[in-house]
Each structure stands twice: as C-alpha cells, then as structure tokens.
C-alpha cells in the first residue's frame, strides 16, 4: 500500500515524505535499538517516540514510514530531519493496537 493510503486508513496526517512510496510489513516498538534491528526495509514503524533519533533509525533501516500514534507529534528537529531525508511521518490519534488492526 502507498503511504498516502496508509495515512487515510489511520485517519492521520502525513507530515513529511513521499505519499507515493510503497510500504509493506509493520513493526511496533519504542526502544530504538530493538527497532533498529527489527524494522525491515519498507516497513511501517509504529512508535510513540517523537525525538530526532527516530529519523536516524528510520533512515538507517530504510523504513517505509514512521507512524507516531496516540496523538503525539514529532519534535520540530525530528520533523526537519525527516523532511531533509524524505522520510514519511504520519501522526494519528489511534493507539498502536488500533493502528496495526487497521493496517
């Protein structure tokens, strides 16, 4: 599915990145080292982390999209880095469980 479709399904907002990018598979987690080793290329990564390091992890793992759940928003510098690196970031009010069910 495309990032833009994912944003729609989640009732979320796409803040950065390319909406046309194809994503597949999903990992949920907030510990960066675990995400680093578990997120596969093109995966949707669902987290409540909002600091700049999520952009580094997404970039290094080639994650397809970061979904920040439970109504949290990325920090300004995190969003700036995500935009620079063309990483898709979606925010949603849904919980990680609700989001993964919808996916």
């Amino acid at each position: 599915m495309k990032v833009s479709e994912l944003a729609e399904i989640l009732g979320g907002e796409l803040l950065s990145g390319n909406g046309e990018r194809e994503v597949s598979g999903c990992y949920i987690g907030d510990l960066l080292s675990l995400a680093m080793s578990r997120v596969q290329a093109d995966n949707v990564w669902i987290t409540i982390q909002t600091n700049i390091n999520i952009a580094a992890v997404a970039s290094l793992t080639d994650a397809g999209c970061i979904v920040i759940c439970d109504g949290f928003s990325p920090d300004a510098d995190a969003l700036e880095k995500a935009r620079d690196e063309e990483i898709a970031v979606i925010t949603t009010e849904k919980s990680a469980y609700e989001a993964s069910k919808l996916i």
Partner: peptide, 16 residues
Amino acid sequence: ELGFGAGMGLPNIKKY
C-alpha cells in the same frame, strides 16, 4: 526516555 538504554547496543554490534 529518548528510547535508548535497551541494553541492546553491544549485543546488536556483535550480532550484525
């Protein structure tokens, strides 16, 4: 609080 400190650093380095 930033999401670090999982205790996976060196184990991950070894693993990969």
